[in-house]
Design a binder for these strands. Structure first.
Lengths: 199, 199
DNA sequence: CAAATCTGGATACTATTACTATCTAGATTA
DNA sequence: TAATCTAGATAGTAATAGTATCCAGATTTG
């Protein structure tokens, strides 16, 4: 298919597609002549994935780029791709050593093992610190409830992964990033439903 | 306290504080003379809240502005403030009527009641549609598991609300927005912990 | 077969967001 | 009294994510 058709089928404007090509987010089409190239379903899929990551998951283009590069890197296991996705998502934060220790104690308490270089404990430390700083710290019970809920959805996410590596990697990325908004929206709905009952 | 002290105690640069004053995110200090004003703890609290909403919850300043305006509006109940926060969070989306119907059917299935004007069903419809469009739809069981997890955390969030209206409103906003990253980080951690076991 | 349209690729421009910097007139501190 | 600080206004900047224009060449249509 030509670029115009790719644009029509994906709903992404041609100048935007050209921009993604320039930025290396989308592979170039195969040149059939000097001013003509053809695109296939992989381009369409990739384009839809980019738009979803940007619009639904709210990722910035440079993050999308890193994540897609990890997906395309055949040498990485899906666990490594997951780590890349997580690293790309967490803004570089600098929590205190004490706060990170506290976060790691919580992980140990729940029996969760994460990689030493994972940015997640630091990210958790920052998130909890900010709740403290605005005067609304989370207590132990609330955290335990959150952890239990997180474990429940993670169990669903990680189960039923396809055998093929490429498919599995995409499933992991999509499952991690595009289901986040679903979880948040459901939480807000549940809050509204409960809040309405109490008011 | 003077602006320099407010800056030092909050960690926010003076030009940024001035910018927030201009934008109406922060009340002006009380003028003690034509070139001198004094700030108090409410300013410090507000400043920390703004920074947390921007840095941790990832909100844009215009959204922060709307949310804070709702918090400050004494005539709104905390349920209305919650609605404002949710409306401000969801980007204006235009899902198909069919998709929204599907989302509402899910809500009915779980016994959740949300307001007719709530943007949440439409937001859910969009999130699920985008998962479909990239070829990774969520099945019934996965959705049920997500809903159960969402209900569990919402129950914790809505319980233990302070009696005072202003405190309750802030608790609701903080609880809704600043605990989101906590939930997402915990989910990612749980995924990593599980994924590591499987690889 | 010729005019109008489309294409890939390059370059330049634009809108938005969130600050930063500078300036001025006046106030405070050393 | 000289150096520093302050409020408020105005102007400038960096990053992000596109848009717009142009060109040489290719394709479609009348």
């Amino acid at each position: 298919m030509k670029m115009s058709e790719l644009s029509a089928r994906s709903g992404v404007a041609i100048p935007t597609i050209k921009f993604y090509l320039r930025e290396g987010l989308l592979r170039r089409g195969e040149l059939t002549s000097r001013t003509q190239a053809s695109y296939d379903d992989t381009h369409l899929r990739r384009l839809r994935l980019i738009r979803s990551l940007v619009e639904v998951a709210g990722l910035k283009l440079d993050v999308v780029k890193r994540v897609l590069a990890a997906v395309d890197d055949e040498s990485r296991t899906r666990h490594e791709v997951l780590g890349t996705a997580h690293s790309s998502l967490s803004a570089p934060a600098s929590p205190s050593v004490e706060d990170v220790k506290h976060a790691r104690r919580l992980l140990a308490h729940w029996g969760w093992q994460v990689h030493t270089q994972s940015p997640l404990p630091a990210a958790l430390a920052c998130a909890l610190r900010s709740l403290d700083s605005v005067g609304h710290p989370m207590n132990e019970e609330a955290l335990d409830a959150y952890a239990a809920a997180a474990a429940a959805v993670a169990a669903v996410d990680v189960s039923e992964l396809p055998a093929d590596r490429t498919d599995a990697v995409e499933t992991v990325v999509v499952g991690t990033l595009l289901r986040e908004p679903v979880l948040l929206i459901l939480r807000r709905m549940a809050q509204e439903a409960r809040s309405a009952r109490n008011e």
